[in-house]
Every structure is written in structure tokens, then in C-alpha cells.
Design a protein around this nucleic acid. Sequence first.
DNA 1: GTGAGTCCCGGGTTTACATCA
DNA 2: CATGATGTAAACCCGGGACTC
Length: 332
Amino acid sequence: MSEKDDGLGLSLSLKCPENDYPPPPPPPPPPTGASGSSRLPLNLLPSPPLPFGQRHHHVANHQRLSFMINHAPISPPDLNPDTRSYARVIDVNRPPSTSAVAALTAERDDDAFVSSPNSTVSSVSGKRVEREDNEAERESSSHGISGEEEDDGGDASAARKKLRLSKDQAAVLEETFKEHNTLNPKQKLALAKQLDLRPRQVEVWFQNRRARTKLKQTEVDCEYLKRCCDTLTEENRRLQKEVNELRALKLSPQFYMNMNPPTTLTMCPQCERVAVSSSSSSAATSSTHGPTGLPKALQVSMPSNHQKQTNLFLPRASIIPHRPVDAHHPRW
DNA sequence: GTGAGTCCCGGGTTTACATCA
DNA sequence: CATGATGTAAACCCGGGACTC
């Protein structure tokens, strides 16, 4: 995984995983209209009241993604190595003939036309039955390949033309995406009109853009989890080593007669909870051995309401964090 | 309440294009 | 310069959820 700027603004330069995982997503903005349309920038249409067919159920998805978007400043397309070549690419989307645009907008400036491939679907068995027809229409209505290419080809549905968006178009789309990662039909139409694209193109672009954002976020999450795993593995290794050392010490008490007991572990034999109390400060002035004859470092002392003391294998110490006071151990 | 129709989305895939060795 | 490998973006397909009628 590289740290290059991928144009999605999702750098993978992770730091120490302990504390720097992205904060929880900010509270999602209240659903305003269908797709956050009230945040529509530029000169796009103001958000209309929910038109027919405009749904609220996508808000959940929007919120899911909003975190990623909010944390993924988007680089200008120029910085994206993948768009470097755009300037050299023949801009096939360049102004469809004005008549084509006029026809496009005039014919489609209607909520009923939402550029969905399903718009022309016949209702027999399902969806997109007539996508090809729709596509043929699309091919002829934009891309600047209108007339002539279709005339000699004839079969526009056979070969789908894949055409790069221009640098400017991509920039506008990116800017819009920064504001809201989904579009309602009005916004889509307005944006398509502004960019001389078909609404379907705008729709597809947003879908792909959301997918790319999600993919990048997944990569970031994966990287973070790997680092967490590495950290925990290292910690585990360290603790295991410590355990082995302490076990070795236990077998040769004389070796550490003068050691300050770092900790006294206290375990309740009933619930097996363990409490840690630092005794290092007093250890220097008292015997290093408790009543059991074991060094304090290896002693487990019981709360005074317990009758016996138990030796404890130290690995438990790493489990500890126990609440200091509870009903069962009132004095803890 | 239910089914059909519609719209939109996410996930996955295909395809066209650009870049590079 | 030609060519194949590779990466990426655009377009597509499919299934499914939500909504309206």
C-alpha cells in the first residue's frame, strides 16, 4: 500500500494506532430533503420539496458514507496522477451540439426523467429490459459523437463507448461530491446540464466515486487493524517474556532477595478477581517477604475479609484492570 | 395487507483508455 | 516505434430496499 495521494484525499500515513484512530463520525446532519440537497452549492437548483419518488431511505447510506467523506478531503483532480492525462485526452464530452443539449434538457427537465436506466424499463419482468435502447439514445445525445459515428456504425448498442470526462468536468463533480455524495434528481439534472453530460453519466460518476471512497476507507481501516495487530502481538510477546522471567525468578528466590516488589496482587478466591496495589514505596522499608515466605512480588494477599492467601501465577496480573470497589470487595 | 411498478443504491464486473517498461 | 502488462475510470449488471399506487 502506498502513501501516494490518490486523489481521494485518503492518505494512509497512519501514526501510532493506540490513539489516533479516526474519531467517531460526527453526528450526521439531520436529513434535509432527500440527499442533503440543502447543501447544494454552485448554482445548482435549490432543493425542491421531495418530488415524487424521492426517498428518505437513502439517508442511512448517506450517513454511513458521510464519515468517510468528511474525513476524506478530496484533492484537486490535477493532483491526481490518474487525471494527469486528461488534458491530453480528446474531450469527447465537449459540447454536444447546442441543439443536442437543448434537446436533452428540454426533453428531460422533468422529474419523471431521472436518468435512471430504469426509466425506460418496460414492466414485464423486471428492470432494465430496454437499457440498450436507452443507451443508444444516450450515445447519440452526447459525447460529441453524435451523428456521424452512429451513422456508419449503425449499432450503437453493440459497442459501448467509454469516454473520459474532461478535467473541468471531473473537478466540478469532485467539488459537488465534497458537498454531498449523493444527488437528488434535480441536482443530478442540473449538474448534468451544467457539465454537458447526461444525467446518467453524473449518476454513474457518483456511484463510482462512492465506491472508490469506500474502498479507500476500507484500505485505511485495514491498515489500522494490521497495526493494532502488530502492536498487540508485540505486547503479548513482551508480556510472555516477562512471565517467563518472573517464573524463573520464582524458582530461585535468592536471586532477587533485594528486589523491590513492584506490585502486590490481591485475588479473591471466590470470584478470582485480582486487584493490584502498588507497594513499591513501602517495600524498601519492610521485609521483602511476606508471611508465606515468598517474595512480595509473588505474593497474593487477600483483603482482610478473606482468610487465606494464595499464590498466584503472574499472568493473571495482565488481566487485571479491576474496579477498585464493589459490593463484593467493599474495601478495594 | 399485498403485489406491481419505480427509483436508487451497493457490490461486482466489464470495457476502454492511458501509462510504462 | 510497437507491444504487452497494468492500473484506473466509465459503464454496466444484478439484487435488494424503500416508496407509491
